[in-house]
């Protein structure tokens, strides 16, 4: 599913003393199969932008096309759109509400018009997909689960309706290393099956560099760069402007380069840096 954003602007509380321009003439296209990282400091407009993709914020200026559908139109079928574009918020465990995990995960599919049987089947699939034992957890209250399990159940609730686009707002915030790894693995799994297009907001440059094939850099509501992680992190001026720093692996590569050691890698993750170092030093 391709997403095309054309000249998108958004103003909070327009024509009041609290007026704030959140997005200012942003245009870019997300191709099917892309994993796009959206980065920028707090208040740069990342969340506002992402909430446009499934019309949680309606387009007020500019256009957005999801596939061929113009979602800026007032007549957009919101239910169909939200079924297609799934959205995972920060701390998704705070949205759990039903008395059993199975019912909670079925909430989305039922809202999106699947019948009970189909919804139950989708829920079972999703719960397995996030790595939980369906039979063990299905009748448990979501509030009895451990912190990590809660987050997984909540994610199951978002992916149960098999969205073809998934938008993640800081998916790993507050998680320990295992939790982080699990979520990023899950995103890779999803990309192999029904969810080909992924858009993620993150402050963690290591995650962006290792997982995204494209990055969109926002600054004060404007699109600053639409590029690849290789190019962004190879451009010190761009990194300085984003105020977000380098991924650790790129940082190490740059320190080595400053001492005259050239490496044949963009060093976007620890593994590729390690391989390059082995090639350079272990012969």
């Amino acid at each position: 599913m391709r997403i095309k954003v054309e000249d998108l602007s958004y103003v909070y509380s327009p024509k009041t003393p609290f007026e704030k321009v959140a997005l200012d003439g942003v245009s870019f296209t997300v191709k099917e199969g892309d994993t796009v990282g959206i980065i920028g400091s707090t208040g740069s407009g990342k969340s506002t932008l992402c909430q446009h993709f499934n019309a949680l914020i309606r387009v007020t200026h500019g256009k957005i096309y999801v596939g061929d559908v113009d979602i800026s139109s007032k007549k957009t079928d919101l239910t169909a759109l939200r079924k297609q574009v799934g959205m995972l918020f920060q701390f998704p465990e705070y949205q759990l509400f039903d008395d059993t995990v199975a019912k909670d995960v079925q909430f989305g599919p039922l809202n999106f018009g699947f019948d009970r049987e189909e919804a139950a089947r989708l829920a079972a699939e999703a719960i397995k997909m996030v790595g939980m034992d369906y039979d063990e957890v299905k009748d448990k209250s979501p509030f009895e689960l451990s912190g990590g399990e809660k987050r997984r159940a909540a994610i199951a609730g978002v992916i149960a309706s098999k969205p073809s686009v998934l938008v993640l707002d800081e998916p790993t915030a507050g998680l320990d290393p295992i939790g982080k790894r699990e979520i990023l693995e899950l995103v890779k799994e999803l990309k192999k099956s029904f969810c080909k297009t992924v858009i993620m907001i993150s402050h963690n440059m290591d995650e962006i560099a290792a997982n995204c094939n494209r990055v969109i850099v926002l600054h004060d509501g404007k699109l600053l760069y639409d590029t690849t992680p290789e190019e962004l992190f190879a451009d010190p001026e761009a990194v300085a402007r984003t105020d977000l720093g380098y991924p650790h692996s790129v940082h190490i590569k740059r320190l080595l380069e400053a001492k005259g050691v050239k490496l044949d890698t963009a060093a976007l993750d620890a593994d590729s840096l390690l391989e390059a170092l082995k090639r350079r030093y272990c012969v």
Partner: peptide
């Protein structure tokens, strides 16, 4: 603020 966040999350799951 929390109500807003939860409503958004549930809307994203098709709630109306």
């Amino acid at each position: 603020e929390e109500v807003d966040k939860i409503m958004m999350a549930q809307k994203a799951r098709g709630a109306s």
